[in-house]
């Protein structure tokens, strides 16, 4: 992995974390893409009683 792709990956994970945070603060389910990037299974997240 090059330094450039590493930085891009870090930012994409940060972006996914921000998107997921934004969703949970609004009591909504985060988007599938964001959860996938964070390594979270959608079904597991859906099971949490938000």
């Amino acid at each position: 992995m090059t330094a450039y792709s590493f930085i891009r990956n870090v930012f994409s994970i940060l972006n996914a974390a921000i998107a997921a945070t934004s969703a949970v603060r609004q009591h909504r389910m985060p988007e599938t893409g964001a959860l996938k990037k964070l390594g979270i299974r959608e079904a597991d997240f859906r099971a949490i009683q938000l």
Partner: peptide, 14 residues
């Protein structure tokens, strides 16, 4: 793309 651009870019990279 509603904030998914970077996610997709990195996904392609993986």
């Amino acid at each position: 793309g509603k904030g998914q651009v970077l996610t997709q870019m990195a996904g392609d990279e993986d």
